[in-house]
């Protein structure tokens, strides 16, 4: 189960895309998230999906600016941190912090989700806000990122 907007459903449909031919996997009526390690694919799917997710948190300023203009969201998953340890977690955390800094600078909206696959990975709203603060957001920004407003 994944946390989405406050007054929206708690689950979202993640579409892993290698190219634009995978875009038709989006399900109507569900909150669709486009996931790809290729930022060019994310740019192509910007208009069709509600949120975008790059598991490597590689930054692309052009993508962030377009996300801001189109009022879409960039997804940050807490489960990425939960499933790593040691130096891997440290490196990923530094990437996420930098990514968050750029999102805030270029005013791209951020959505923080737990990315839970089972009950032990679920996080409540306050916990997601705390992670947002750790990544460099202010409290108000973290509340918005979790609440979805």
């Amino acid at each position: 189960m994944n946390n989405a907007e406050k007054n929206e459903v708690k689950e979202f449909n993640e579409v892993k895309a290698a190219g634009s031919r995978d875009f038709n996997k989006a399900v109507k009526g569900k909150f669709n998230v486009l996931a790809s390690e290729n930022n060019e694919v994310l740019k192509q799917g910007l208009k069709r999906f509600e949120a975008l997710y790059n598991p490597t948190y590689a930054f692309d300023i052009d993508l962030l600016q377009k996300t801001a203009i189109n009022e879409k969201k960039m997804l940050v998953k807490v489960s990425d941190l939960v499933h790593t340890r040691g130096m891997t977690r440290a490196r990923l955390l530094s990437k996420m912090i930098f990514f968050m800094r750029l999102c805030l600078k270029y005013k791209a909206r951020v959505l923080i989700a737990s990315g839970a696959k089972n009950e032990f990975e679920e996080k409540n709203k306050n916990e997601l806000e705390t992670i947002g603060i750790i990544l460099g957001m202010k409290w108000v920004e973290a509340k918005k990122a979790v609440g979805g407003s």
Binding site: E122, E127, I133
Partner: peptide, 23 residues
């Protein structure tokens, strides 16, 4: 406080099995 809370939130296992520590 926020850092300690985050550290607790990110605990995923205890006693050799999956666990959840909720602040």
């Amino acid at each position: 406080v926020e850092e300690v809370k985050a550290a607790i939130i990110l605990i995923s296992e205890a006693n050799g099995g999956k666990a959840r520590f909720e602040v």
